[in-house]
């Protein structure tokens, strides 16, 4: 088991490195000299050259790559050109927005999708199934940024329950901060929940058709107990795959949703850095995001072993 996990971790490291290299090379194509951008159009050639040296832009490509990636293990992601601040310092407060947002959205997605999917499967072909799957069909089609606007219109402007935009921060207590994240999390999470509910439904329907369900019923379980205790655990295996994939959607989704709700998160930072041609920041943030996605997929792989004993490493025959 340990060697399996170590092996996977190593592969994960390689993939992350490859991803970082791709991002790094891509950023080199970016038109516009960051030094020129920083100094503006009227910069003197000497000042420009001095800044280029200071930023290390006159070094060969591979030295710059190694310098940059070499800092990662120590939490050194470089220094932002625009803010002249270490990127790690820019990141810290923004992660406190984006991470809770992502986790909340994921919780909404799973928390809504599982019961709805299992319910629809258990009512297969009946009105409850058509209603919930019809709703899911629409949910899949709604773009999250529009859902965000609708939520603002209804819950913030009409009912005045929750703030329309901005982030209140965590300093004034958990609830204040959480309040500003509820609508964005719903906007991100509900469309994902719609996809996941459809997957859950078909996975549960498939599991319900298996022989072991009949065995469970023959043992005296109610159809409800057979559904939740026998069919659902089997259905969780395909569901976990989708949850893993959704995490990647979700991270990308934060870029847009943080714009809709004006949240000071990582997504907005990336977006602003792109607009300001802040090369190193974009490079580091995108690499970190890719690493996150790779890591979450690794966690999902581990979860498989837990959900499906047939895949558990070291299970032995």
């Amino acid at each position: 088991m340990t060697s399996y996990v170590l092996g996977r971790l190593f592969a994960l490291l390689l993939t992350t490195l490859a991803a970082s290299l791709i991002v790094f090379l891509l950023m080199q194509i970016l038109p516009g000299d960051p030094a020129a951008v920083m100094l503006g159009v009227n910069a003197q050639p000497e000042t420009l050259a001095a800044l280029r040296t200071k930023l290390g832009l006159d070094q060969p490509l591979w030295t710059r790559y190694l310098d940059w990636i070499g800092g990662f293990p120590f939490g050194d992601f470089g220094v932002s050109h625009t803010y002249s601040t270490p990127i790690s310092q820019l990141l810290a407060p923004r992660i406190m927005v984006t991470l809770p947002l992502a986790l909340l959205s994921m919780a909404i997605s799973v928390g809504v999708a599982l019961p709805v999917g299992v319910y629809a499967a258990s009512r297969r072909g009946k009105p409850g199934d058509f209603l919930s799957m019809g709703a899911a069909q629409i949910g899949v089609a709604i773009p999250n940024f529009w859902l965000g606007l609708l939520l603002i219109l209804f819950f913030a402007l009409h009912l005045r329950w929750l703030p329309a935009s901005g982030f209140a921060g965590w300093e004034d207590g958990l609830w204040r901060g959480l309040r500003s994240l509820i609508l964005p999390a719903l906007a991100l999470g509900l469309p994902l929940a719609a996809i996941l509910a459809r997957v859950t439904r078909s996975a549960v329907i498939e599991a319900l058709g298996e022989d072991f369900i009949r065995t469970a019923r023959a043992k005296g379980l109610t159809s409800r107990a057979a559904l939740w205790r026998h069919a659902t655990p089997n259905a969780l295996i395909p569901v976990a795959t989708i949850v893993g994939m959704q995490f990647s959607f979700l991270l990308a989704g934060t870029i847009i949703i943080e714009n809709v709700f004006n949240l000071p998160g990582v997504g907005r930072l990336i977006f602003q850095s792109i607009a300001q041609r802040d090369l190193v920041t974009v490079q580091s943030l995108v690499t970190l995001l890719a690493a996150c996605v790779i890591f979450v997929n690794f966690l999902v792989d581990l979860a498989y072993g837990w959900l499906d004993p047939r895949l558990a490493a070291g299970g032995g025959r």
Partner: peptide, 23 residues
């Protein structure tokens, strides 16, 4: 339901699929 498994029990043909693989 209370008779099933308690007073009337059944063994099925396919041992490969009649048991729950994740339990």
């Amino acid at each position: 339901r209370r008779l099933r498994g308690r007073r009337i029990a059944m063994i099925f043909q396919e041992p490969m699929t009649a048991l729950n693989p994740v339990m």
